[in-house]
Design a protein around this nucleic acid. Structure first.
Length: 269
DNA sequence: TGCGCACCTGGTGAAATAAG
DNA sequence: CTTATTTCACCAGGTGCGCA
């Protein structure tokens, strides 16, 4: 016996769960009830009951499809974050603890990024960067002894850099890649729009003297990011870290330019 | 003079996602 | 299920300044 639900604490997340996972003996459609979510429970709205799981699955897919169509007018980059956290009958929260942890972890990380400007793009960057494998790695304890923990869920890299511990641990494939770490930290600290419009030093590129110099990123924060990665990967030369950061700036700028070009072409037609 | 660096453009392949 | 599209990381190559 199954029920189609919508998690109320998870952004527009539909799900199909076993009846026994609903922690209430008497429930009706439209009720908000506690539903088992791994070792805990989470409130959810009962949308449909008393149908077999195939019917519920089709209903879920139809609802998802309708929601997608409503979102169609949004910017392309929103596509990635539209992906809801969905459990199939074969993959319920209780059947795959790691998956649940990974999804919850992603959710929290994306919530942190809400604070940054251009949050859709930031979210997408994290969504793409953090594959399941990456998140799994992120769930492992990170070697962050050089950092001062300012609370249960936050880590203070410096007075100027304070981010959620999960966010920090997720950077760099969970601390397994210095290049990914410095790029993820840059996105987390500056936001993608700033990366696309700023340069490392603020100096004009010698290869393109006619172009306009981009303003520099906050050098203090840049140094702090490099220091942070350097402490975690002491064998990696700082010039490599700067190169990776510069590359990230290049890529973000390139992507932004492409978007602008595409928008211009769309307006012309 | 050679090297390192900063900046830029363009290309490729992998992975994720959408569409048919 | 297959194909197309998008996004990203990574790489190559070019330019010219600063410095030893």
């Amino acid at each position: 016996m199954w029920a189609l639900i919508e998690w109320t604490e998870i952004e527009a997340s539909l799900d199909i769960v076993k009846r026994k996972d609903i922690l209430q003996s008497v429930v009706h459609e439209g009720d908000v009830v506690d539903v088992k979510y791994e070792d805990e429970s989470s409130p959810a709205l009962i949308l449909k009951m008393n149908e077999n799981k195939d019917k519920l699955l089709k209903r879920l897919n139809r609802m998802e499809s309708e929601r997608r169509q409503k979102e169609e007018c949004k910017l392309p980059e929103k596509r990635a974050i539209k992906r809801k956290i969905i459990f199939s009958p074969e993959n319920t929260p209780s059947s795959s603890p790691d998956q649940v942890q990974i999804k919850r972890f992603k959710k929290r990380l994306l919530t942190d990024l809400e604070l940054l400007p251009n949050r859709s793009a930031n979210k997408h960057a994290v969504q793409t960067s953090l594959t399941s494998a990456a998140c799994s790695a992120a769930l492992q304890p990170a070697n962050s002894s050089h950092l001062s923990s300012s609370g249960l869920d936050h880590v203070e890299i410096h007075k100027k850099l304070n981010m959620a511990k999960d966010t920090f641990q997720a950077c760099g494939r969970g601390g397994t890649s210095w290049s990914a770490m410095i790029k993820d930290l840059a996105v987390a600290v500056f936001g993608r729009s700033m990366l696309a419009t700023h340069s490392l030093s603020g100096k004009i590129g010698n290869a393109n003297k006619e172009s306009q110099a981009k303003p520099p990123l906050d050098p203090t924060k840049v140094e702090l990011i490099i220091d942070t990665v350097s402490k975690k990967f002491p064998e990696t030369p700082r010039k490599f870290l700067r190169a990776a950061l510069r590359e990230k700036l290049n890529d973000e700028h390139k992507l932004l330019s492409r978007h602008h070009k595409k928008d211009t072409v769309t307006l012309q037609h």
